[in-house]
Amino acid sequence: MSETLLVLPALLLAGFGLAILLRRPAGAVGGPGFVERNGAVIAAYLVVAVGFWVLLMIVLPQLYMVDFSFRNNLPLPKQGGPEDVHTLKNYRYLLFGPEGSDQAFNWLHLKVFAKTIVASVLVTFFDFCLCYPIAYYIAQVARGGSSRLLFVCLLIPFWVNEILRAFAFRIIFGTSGVLNTVLIGMGILPPDAPIDFLRADVALYAGLSYAYVLMMVFPLYNAIESLDHNQIEAARDLGSPWWRIHWRVVMPHAKPGIASGCVMVFMLAAGALATPQILGGPSSLWFTQVIYDQFFQGANWPRGSAYAFVLLVSSIIFVMSAMRLFKVNLGDIAR
């Protein structure tokens, strides 16, 4: 605990450092400063509110979790005692499993981890394929009223609670669910052999993709909407088929939006818990479920923290390298 408290002054120092870095150079030409522009009360409110939000709600808990991940799982009386030292054993556990195990690596957890990342990439890709045409249509093709109607149609399902939506997908994809009933009714499937969409993870992918449709549609829409329609017509007039217009004109323009949508969907999918819990097949496990189990089944908070931290860091590294590969800057995404 005491070390965590030491973090606070360090953060304050970092904050001051940042303030000095961002300060207007003396004598620079420019408008009035932050305080002059907003007035003392509003400026103070903004600084305190944003500072409170960032420090107390995000930075400190995360740092606390990081600190936790390097500790032994001790019962309360032993905490602060001689055994309460920093250790790497939680991370070692994720890689190599329990000591004395007959396997070289902790395959069970590592596989779940890899599967979570790969599946999140798939969900992101699927969402992109689904949302790009929709966003393009709303942004460039639909006019006034119909684009608003489409937005409403996209929004309304998200008034329903996430868990209820996931259960609705169970009803659709279950062995005796809507989809199987329809397929059997149409004679496509034999009545005695429905497809187990849940076991095949179809329901999981569909549910996750559906859950983050809006996260993909809105950044794509914003990016595509700002494209001058004349550019599309110019490309067409120069003889371009539709796919080349998208490849050479629309997508390069929308790249920041594509990146921002993909990052959001990937991060959310990799960190999803409820949907995989409800829609995952009996044998499939999402890494967040493993983390959850460490916290609440195994009562091993340090190990859960280590797992969560690994997921966070590897997601960030993955996203950063993907952005470098596609030559997108972090600044572009924030636009």
């Binding site: 550019q231 017509e233 110019a234 067409r236 007039d237 371009s240």
Partner: peptide, 28 residues
């Protein structure tokens, strides 16, 4: 329009800002 023997110059020109001048000219 992509099949007609016409080429249109737009009022705002509609050059492709993310391409070089040569790539713009050679797009067709």
């Amino acid at each position: 329009p992509n099949k007609r023997p016409t080429a249109l110059i737009f009022q705002n020109l509609a050059l492709f800002p993310l391409m070089s001048v040569a790539d713009n000219i050679a797009f067709g």
